[in-house]
Every structure is written in C-alpha cells, then in structure tokens.
Nucleic acid binder design. Structure first.
Lengths: 336, 336
DNA sequence: TTAATTTACTAAAACGTTTTCGTCAATACG
DNA sequence: CGTATTGACGAAAACGTTTTAGTAAATTAA
C-alpha cells in the first residue's frame, strides 16, 4: 500500500506538505502541488479512508435506513428507484452509502449505534415505522437526518405530494362521469392520510357522497390483500364503477379478481393506480396512475442531507410534485 | 464519544487489557472480562470501526458490484432479491455492504480503487459485463471475489442452473404437445448461452426441429424489445404455438402484443417466463415459469466470500438449483 | 537599514484501536 | 530451596492521516 510517506520521500518534502498539497491548501506553492500530485498518481496513491476518518471524523458515508415490516423495502420498485437515485446522487457528491440495520453480527445494535459504529455523516430515512423508538432515537440524535415522506418538526424532509396525487386521480374519475368511486387505500400511515384527504376533497368538490364501504383498507404492495379488498367492493349491492388502488403493483391483485368475475377494464369498471412505476406503463390495459418522482425525491434528500452535513442549513420541508399519467384503464361513465 | 481509555480508567486496568477482554483473548481473567464488559455496556461503548480498521486492515465491509448497462440493476426484481439476500447474510456475519462504483466524487476511480479506498474485505460481483477491463482488474487483484452467474477459473462463483431451467421449461412445452416452440432469449451472455443449450437439448430429445426464426434475441427486462420480438414471431407464416420469454417482467411486453392481436393466453398461444419473481405469481394468467432461488444465490455468495476472507477456502463453483413453477399460461396442444 | 510581514514549508501530536514484548507474581517442578 | 513455568496484566509502538504551532527565508514596510 502506498502512503503519503512514500510520496513525501519521493518528492523530498514532508508528509504534512503532501497532505496539504493533495487537499488544496493555499499555503503550498503551485510547483510543489504539481510535483506532489504527479507523483501521487504515478505511484497510484489512494488515500486511506480509515486514517482520514479517524482524524477528521468524516466518513464520507451516508446511512440509508430503508426497512419495512414486510421487508419488501428493496423489492418495492418505487423504493428501489429512490434507493438508486440516493445512491447515485450520493456518489456524485463523493459519498458512499451504507445500509443501516439493527442486527449487525450476531448481536443486537440500535440504528443509532450502527450509525455511530460506521461513523455515518448523515442518514436518509424512508419507508420505516416512524413511531419506532429506535427510529426516534436516531432522529433525535446529533446525526444529521433527512426523512422521506414523513416530517419531523426540526428536520428536513422530502415529501411526495400525496394529497395532490390522490386529488387529481379522484377528480379525473369524477370528471369522467363516475359517481360511485371507491378507494382502496393502504395502511393508515401519514402518506395514506394525505391521500385520503385528497380523495375526499375531490369528492366534495364534485358533490359526491362516498359511503363508508367504498373506503377500504388493504396493504401496500400486497396483491393478495388488495384482491380481497376488490372482491369485497364487487360484492356490494351497489358496486363502484371506478376503483382507486393503493399502488400500481398491488393493483394486479385487483385486476385478477376483476378478470375472474368476467368483468373488463375499463368497460365494466374503471381503475387507477399510484406510483407510475415502469410496470404501470407496460400493463394492459395501460394504467391511469399518478407518477411519483422517485428520482427527484432521492436526489433532493441527498442534496439536503449533504447541505446539512457540510454547511449549516435550516430545516426545510421540500415537496416533490408528481404527474398525472393517463392510460386506458378509465372509461367515461354515462350515468343512467 | 466513549473510548477504550474511558473504560480502562473506570476499571483501573490498561487499555490493552480492555481491548483484549472485549475481543475474547484467553489471557485475561474471567473476573476482569466480566468487569470490562459490564462497564463497557454501562458506558454505552461502541468500538470505533475506523481505528480498528486502521490497525487490523479489516473493514468488515463487503463491496457489491451490481451494475448494469441499462442501470436497471436495482429495479430488476431478481437482482434486488439477490441484493437483499446478500445484505442480510452479510449483516448476520457482521459485515456491512458498500456499493462499488467507478465515479465517486467528481473524479473517476476504478472499481478496484474504490474497493481499496473503502478497504472492502471482499466483493460480490453480479450483473455486470464481465469483459469490462475494470471488472477484470478487480477480479485479478488480491481482493477476494465471488461472482454470480459467471465463472472465472480460479475464483468461487455461484451460478443458477440456467441450462436446467430452460431445459425443463422447453421439455414441459414439448410434453404438452407443442411442436412449434419459439425462444425469445436475452443478449448473448454466458447465462443466455446456457439457456439456449438447455432449450436445444430439450428440442433434440423430443425430436423437434427449431427453425432459426424461432430463436430471436431481445433484451432482458426490456418489455418493449420483447414486444417487438413477439410481434416478429406472430408475423411469421408459421407462427409458434408456444413462446419462451427471457424473463417474467419483459414477458408483459409480449403479452401486450398478443392481446392486441386478439389472441388469448393460453388458448391461442402458450407462454412461459423465467425467474419466478413475485410478479409472475399474481399475473393473469398466472405464468408458468422457472423459479431462480435468488435468496439462496445471495446467501451462498456471501457465505463463500466470508469463507475466503476469514479462512483459506478453495475456489469452488456452486450451482444453485431452481424450481419449476406451474401456472396456467400453457395449454395442451393437440397437433392437427 | 531594521523591523514587520508573508510565504512555504516541517515537526510532532493526535485520532482509537490492536498487538508485540515485557514484567512480575504465583505456582509447579526437580 | 532454587529454578522453570504459567497466568494476568501493562507499556508502547504502530496503523495513515490531518492539523496546530512553529520556523526559516524571502519579501515588504518604515
């Protein structure tokens, strides 16, 4: 392993000078800087991250806390898109990412402990139970944190505009003449509450009364649970003419139920999804859905995190807007 | 930050003793070990990974090289499953994982350099272009490597039994009476070659001649390219009665083409996928496909990697077997 | 000319561990 | 009883950086 000392010998200067030259200190003469940099790359020098960290307490590493009760965190396309974007933005900023878990090795260790152990400079948190004591411990600690789709008072957060998304989809269905609109929503998280609010606003604006049976809870990303919810809706005396699904993926569960009853989309029933993932574009019928800008969400969270790691930045709630994606899963409904 | 010194003061022993007590050296008396461990947890001590690494040259960190030309590495369900499994197995072994890339910060850095910089103890490589000079540099270096679905002479590798998978699917189609069987395969990687071999073997055993037009190349995980390939097949004078698709996801592209021509699966045409991901189970019709044990593949690669990091292990090619998943996308074909 | 300032560099300590040699009792052996 | 051996611990160096405080020479100011 070639170290700073090797360079210093080769150049006939002290290690201190090499370090400064490499790190762009102004007090080193241009010629020396040149010389040092040249020999550094000649010797194929790589700084030792551990040694640097030990001195500076900066790991250039950001933690990613992306867990899920169902452990589908990584296979959930929406979250993998965020993860991917976080990773790339982190990398262009010179950071690597580390997954934060709480059972490293055989022994139990809290999220915060894991962060400390790996000296993460900051953490991006998404898709977790934000009431979890360990999450709270981390959030309240001194490590910089940015949360996704959940806001704490004194912290920066990046949120997708869930209220708007649900509002727009519901409004669209209403505009198309639907009056019996059901909403299969996910577990009652903050995200879900926002969407329900958006849905309700659209209904109100269109003078539509939504019976309680039209609001049914299922689990995000769980095709089976959504299929059951769909079945319940179709079994009603007055089944809906349109259904909003919790997300694009789990919609497929609903689709199965609909098909198996010999119904067709959108002729007999109109549907829309949520997320706007790749899958929704290739499905047939193509899904009318709401695109969440996962890429932007990831990018912004890293940007904000880096800001609060490197400088002093004020806590800020950033809203990332989505986009209505039309497909052919909704048909105009002519009330009889 | 509480260090070993704090513990040593509290206990009235030297730092050396604390270190040894914590690391289970035999030369420390049981009582001292007890005392040290108790005060360590009382003070909420966390070892400093950087300091330890600096001394021991062991980071407890394994690199993951999972890139894709199409950058869909993380959103590809099959690979996210592997990634997830790698992550979990690594964690239970006390390792964290780091994504290896070649453009950390603003400056270009080779995969190997990145590994060195982060002191990865070993690397798992999958889903990359194994001819890439940078990959080769890493593979030939002194850092322990395990490859997935590709084998180098002197290295351990974990491979899914691609030949068997394609063989079984093709045989099944033949058993069901199909004689005009097409195979839309992926780009000509090693994996693809194996599958083609399996396919061909099945055809041969069943005395089926496969015209060249029935073997068409598309891109993995690319619904659009697969749709086009499907169209080409359906345009033939003698279109196939059964099609094997490159993977479950991209099959949806083919499905779209089939549906839009007013054909039905499996009545008019039989299909099967590959991978056996979640999606294939909830699709309608449910897909007949080959399940690749992503979980096992991830686990085994970490196991093997840790083995070669911690002890001396011989290079070994490990084959992970899959499983035939029947669905209802294949129908018995009565030759006229 | 002398004093003050600037420039370009260096010595050395420090970061928190691990690990190699010691050391010094206590015990075992001949 | 004297000598090995063992058991339990400590001193100190080392890992590769960064950074503070300094120094000597060169330049500028008075």
């Amino acid at each position: 392993m070639v170290t700073i000392k090797d360079i210093s010998k080769e150049c006939g200067v002290s290690p201190a000078t090499v370090s400064k030259a490499l790190n762009g200190y102004a007090e080193i003469s241009p010629e020396t800087v040149e010389l040092v940099k040249r020999t550094a790359s000649k010797l194929n020098y790589m700084p030792n991250a551990a040694a640097r960290l030990l001195k500076t307490n900066r790991s250039n590493n950001i933690g990613v806390l992306f867990v899920d009760d169902t452990m589908s965190g990584l296979t959930h396309e929406f979250f993998s898109l965020i993860l991917n974007s976080v990773k790339e933005e982190a990398e262009t900023n010179g950071y690597d990412i580390t997954f934060i878990s709480n059972n490293i090795g055989r022994q139990k260790m809290s999220f915060l402990q894991h962060c400390k152990y790996r000296n993460c400079d900051g953490v991006v948190i998404a898709s977790v139970d934000f009431q979890n004591p360990e999450v709270l411990e981390l959030v309240r600690s001194d490590v910089p944190v940015v949360t996704i789709d959940y806001s704490f008072d004194n912290l920066s957060s990046i949120v997708s505009d869930n209220q708007e998304g649900a509002y727009r989809l519901a409004s669209y269905l209403a505009e198309q003449g639907h009056r019996k609109i059901a909403f299969i929503h996910g577990e009652r998280t903050l995200v879900t509450q926002k969407r329900i609010r958006g849905f309700n606003r659209a209904m109100k604006e269109n003078g539509i009364e939504t019976p309680d049976e039209y609001m049914v809870e299922a689990r995000y990303h769980d095709a089976d649970s959504v299929r059951k919810a769909t079945a319940a809706l179709l079994d009603l005396d007055e089944p809906p003419t349109a259904i909003m699904f919790p997300d694009d993926f789990s919609f497929i569960g609903g689709q199965t139920e609909i098909f198996e009853r010999g119904l067709s989309i959108p002729d007999d029933i109109s549907v829309c999804g949520y997320d706007g993932i790749n899958l929704s574009r290739i499905l047939n019928p193509q899904l009318t859905t709401w695109y969440q800008n996962a890429d932007m969400i990831g990018k912004e969270s890293v940007r904000k995190l880096v800001e609060s790691i490197e400088g002093t930045s004020v806590a800020e709630q950033i809203m990332v807007s989505g986009e209505f994606l039309s497909g052919n899963s909704v048909k105009r409904w002519n009330s009889k």
